[in-house]
Deep mutational scan, measured.
Amino acid sequence: MSIQHFRVALIPFFAAFCLPVFAHPETLVKVKDAEDQLGARVGYIELDLNSGKILESFRPEERFPMMSTFKVLLCGAVLSRVDAGQEQLGRRIHYSQNDLVEYSPVTEKHLTDGMTVRELCSAAITMSDNTAANLLLTTIGGPKELTAFLHNMGDHVTRLDRWEPELNEAIPNDERDTTMPAAMATTLRKLLTGELLTLASRQQLIDWMEADKVAGPLLRSALPAGWFIADKSGAGERGSRGIIAALGPDGKPSRIVVIYTTGSQATMDERNRQIAEIGASLIKHW
């Protein structure tokens, strides 16, 4: 067993022997301040990774656009098919120029040779490549099948209805392509620590998230040296922004954090800054 596999296998073990965790309302004060600064709703939840206990939450059962955070769930569904012998990570998928959609920095470079399922998941999570996500959605049967996968996990809230990039439209009061912070946090925890996926697939999923290259201005910008984070960000229309993450000190994750916002007129930089400040408060009061 590799060191990384050992780390993920012992996530519940280490967490069980940690000192009790206590909620700190100071972080919620910052979440509410972010709402004021952005002029928009902000949803927040913080779960203990081992027990699933909610440590703090704000608007945990209000719907927010998922945006690209759905790509972690998508690759979880792909990995479940791999575990069941219905898919192979090494299978190569070929596609054409007509398949390319807006923001496809990886797939646009491989029109000639195609990409493997493993490479597509890596591109979808680490670079948020939209064509990679659409190609992977095709392998599982489309958005409705991802929703069905989530329902089978016990998540009857999260739903995907459309493809990239239309799913980022974020129309107010439109339930399409949305989740709730509580539902997303619980589902992410199941994917990373539950028995739904094999140990190898859980490790692969967290490795992809740990290698995320496009979430630097968010929670990662607030992390002290030595902290662990595996995350996936999302951005959408109407001032929408979000991030889902597993993080913790001492090089291992111990909490799940989900943050979503929508309806702001603020710039992307300002949305990023507010999420980073929430992260800084979380870490300060850990």
Rank of each mutant, 00 (worst) to 15 (best):
A123L: 03
V214D: 15
E46W: 06
D155R: 08
L160C: 00
F64P: 05
S221Q: 14
E210H: 14
E145P: 10
M268S: 15
M184F: 12
S201M: 04
I229R: 12
V42M: 13
S68P: 08
L55V: 09
A230C: 13
T107E: 03
L49M: 02
K71V: 15
K109I: 06
N98V: 06
A132W: 04
A280S: 11
A222H: 15
F70E: 12
L28H: 09
L55Y: 10
R255E: 14
D212T: 14
P65V: 01
P253K: 02
E270I: 10
A211H: 05
L74H: 01
N168E: 15
D231I: 14
P217C: 10
T147I: 05
A230V: 11
P181T: 03
N173T: 12
Q204Y: 07
R118H: 12
K109D: 03
P105V: 04
A40S: 06
E210D: 13
K71G: 13
V106W: 08
I243E: 12
Q265S: 11
M66N: 05
T158N: 10
H156F: 12
K284N: 10
E46K: 03
I140D: 05
A280Q: 15
S104P: 06
D155K: 09
F64I: 08
S281L: 14
R255Y: 12
E166P: 05
I275Q: 06
E277K: 08
L197P: 12
A185Q: 14
A245R: 13
L192A: 08
N98M: 10
R59P: 04
E62V: 07
P143T: 02
I171F: 00
E119T: 09
V117K: 03
T198C: 06
R271H: 01
Q37H: 13
K213P: 12
V72Y: 03
F58G: 03
N98L: 12
M115C: 01
A132M: 02
T126G: 12
E169G: 03
D161H: 03
K32D: 06
L111R: 03
V82F: 05
K32I: 08
S128R: 08
Q274H: 13
D207N: 02
L137H: 02
L74P: 01
L205Y: 02
Q265F: 03
R176V: 01
E61V: 06
T27D: 03
I125C: 13
G216C: 15
L100I: 13
D174T: 04
G248I: 04
H24L: 09
I283E: 08
V29K: 13
L160T: 03
T139Q: 11
T126L: 13
D99P: 12
V82N: 01
S122L: 12
R59F: 13
E175W: 06
I125V: 13
H24G: 09
E175R: 06
D129I: 01
I278F: 14
V257P: 14
A280M: 09
G154C: 02
G248N: 10
D269S: 12
L136Q: 08
I171G: 00
L218S: 15
L74A: 01
T69L: 13
K190Q: 13
P181R: 02
Q203V: 05
P217D: 15
R159Q: 10
A123V: 01
A246T: 09
I244R: 12
T131C: 02
Q265P: 11
G216V: 15
L218G: 15
I125R: 03
I275R: 09
I275Y: 15
D250Y: 09
S122C: 03
A276G: 14
R255G: 11
L196S: 10
E145A: 14
R81C: 01
E166S: 04
I256G: 13
S254L: 07
Q37I: 06
A211W: 04
Q97R: 03
D36A: 11
S68T: 09
D207T: 04
H156C: 09
E119R: 01
I54H: 10
P172C: 05
P217G: 11
I244G: 11
A230E: 11
G114R: 12
D177R: 05
L55M: 05
V31W: 11
G142W: 01
V117I: 09
D36G: 01
N98G: 10
E175V: 04
G90R: 02
L191D: 09
L47E: 01
P25T: 08
I125G: 08
E270T: 13
Q37S: 09
L89R: 01
G76H: 05
A200I: 03
V29T: 13
T112N: 04
T179H: 03
A225S: 11
P65Q: 01
L150T: 03
K252G: 09
L188D: 15
L74Y: 02
V72L: 07
Q88V: 03
K232Y: 12
S240Q: 00
S264I: 02
L55P: 06
D212N: 15
N134R: 01
G248C: 08
K30Q: 11
R81A: 07
A185K: 12
S80H: 09
D250R: 08
G39Y: 12
I256K: 14
W286I: 02
L282A: 13
Q274M: 12
V29E: 09
H285I: 09
E62C: 05
T178A: 14
L150K: 03
A246P: 09
P224K: 02
T158H: 12
A182E: 06
P224M: 15
N173A: 05
L136A: 07
G85N: 09
R63S: 06
T262H: 12
K144H: 01
T193G: 11
A215H: 15
E210K: 13
G242I: 05
G114H: 11
G263Y: 02
S80G: 13
T178V: 13
T186I: 11
I275E: 09
F64D: 05
C121M: 03
L74E: 00
D177K: 11
S281E: 12
R273T: 13
I45C: 02
W286V: 05
L137G: 03
I283G: 11
R238I: 00
T112H: 02
I244N: 12
V106N: 08
N50P: 06
T262W: 03
R202Y: 04
L111Q: 03
L100Y: 09
S128E: 14
T267W: 12
I54R: 07
H110R: 05
T158M: 13
N152T: 09
Q265D: 10
L218C: 12
Y44M: 03
L135G: 02
E61W: 05
V106M: 08
Q274W: 10
E237D: 04
L205S: 07
Q274R: 12
T116P: 05
T186H: 08
G43H: 05
D161Q: 03
F149D: 03
R202T: 10
M209E: 07
K284G: 05
I171V: 01
F149C: 01
L135D: 08
G76P: 04
